[in-house]
Design a protein around this nucleic acid. Sequence first.
DNA 1: GGGCTGACTAAAA
DNA 2: TTTTTAGCCAGCC
Length: 111
Amino acid sequence: MSDSKKNFFEDVYEVVKLIPEGRVTSYGAIASYLGSKGSARMVGWALIASQPFTNIPAHRVVNRVGMLTGKQHFEASNAMQERLKQEGVKVENDQVVDFDKQFWDPAKELM
DNA sequence: GGGCTGACTAAAA
DNA sequence: TTTTTAGCCAGCC
């Protein structure tokens, strides 16, 4: 069954949509939650596919250091940062402030 | 089928 | 300490 692959992308969307406001997570955390720890890149890939899906807050997903590495793929380079700040997440120089405190681990929160 | 790229991460040098 | 390499896997040429 090749459903697994399709579920992977859908799972990413589900998890990202579950990220509460003012919170952020990392690609690896989502990948790990989905069971593919080493496939963090695929999470990013799924996020690109999630671009047309405006219901997916991809701006709440950053790399492991809290850097807005994916801002380039947004409508505007500053859209990601501005939107995060709008939700209460402090962003400085394309990097989330207190990322460790704002971090939202799906495997931990969703258990 | 083979090779390259990419919104990543961890380990090795 | 910083830089480089390797692993990951889907999509494209």
